[in-house]
């Protein structure tokens, strides 16, 4: 095990092209799905926090319960929709990056939306009125609300990113772990470990930890700088 660890370090340091391709693929998928989930969550969270409508409580409860949705269930549902015989089979999306990003977006959405909603509900009710009375409407108003809820919205987005970068169920079932195509850090770790080959798995595990750390660290530094 010890020697596996050193060989893992060696793989990283030597710039092994497959290791870095896999890491890049994982990042690409996680980044795209987090962006998609955030773009849907921000307006959704804003509507939930500031508009009154019937059934709002139900939407919030559903979102909260979906936060615990198992990745394999999303994988299963999308698999049955995207497979050749499924209703969306004609698009031939199964085992493509698009399928993974779709699955991961669905996975991240309830988390980001719930946390964005609670970030906006935590805002004092004077803020929207102050913005309105000073003449802010539409986009500039929403932008200011986001700015004022600052770290809470950022945490929501980071939680979504954390959820998708580390998941294996969706990537495995919808991506198929195809080498140089849909193979991600987590699917590789699962595969290599089951084969008894720990070096690559460990190397990728270390990179995964480093990515999580770096993303969090740089965003928080960015926030501090912005303030």
């Amino acid at each position: 095990m010890n020697s596996s660890f050193f060989r893992a370090i060696q793989l990283i340091v030597s710039g092994n092209s497959e290791v870095y391709f896999i890491a890049f693929t994982s990042l690409k998928f996680a980044f795209s799905s987090t962006v998609i989930a955030t773009l849907i969550s921000l307006p959704l969270g804003m509507i939930l926090a500031f508009k009154h409508f019937t059934g709002k409580a139900i939407v919030v409860v559903v979102l909260n319960s979906l936060m615990a949705l198992p990745t394999v269930v999303i994988g299963l549902i999308l698999y049955s929709l995207l497979s050749r015989s499924g209703p969306l089979g004609g698009f031939r999306l199964l085992f493509t990056p698009v399928a993974i990003v779709m699955g991961q977006s669905i996975l991240a959405l309830p988390i980001v939306a719930s946390l964005v909603y609670s970030a906006f509900s935590g805002i004092s009710k004077e803020l929207p009125e102050t913005l309105e009375t000073l003449g802010a409407r539409g986009f500039s108003r929403n932008l200011m609300i986001m700015r004022e809820s600052g770290t809470a919205v950022l945490s929501a987005v980071l939680s979504g990113f954390g959820r998708v970068i580390g998941e294996v169920g969706v990537s495995m079932m919808l991506g198929g772990n195809i080498r140089w195509y849909t193979r991600t850090i987590t699917t590789t770790i699962a595969l290599e470990t089951s084969k008894g080959e720990f070096e690559l798995a460990l190397a990728l595990g270390l990179i995964l930890i480093a990515i999580s750390f770096l993303v969090n660290f740089s965003l928080h530094m960015g926030m501090r700088y912005a303030e």
Partner: peptide
Amino acid sequence: VFVHQNPYIFSGSVRHNIEYGLKL
């Protein structure tokens, strides 16, 4: 323009607060 009893102050400088309406 309505001013609250407990006004909401934007995070940032005093200047940022006053400039906001002018930028709009």
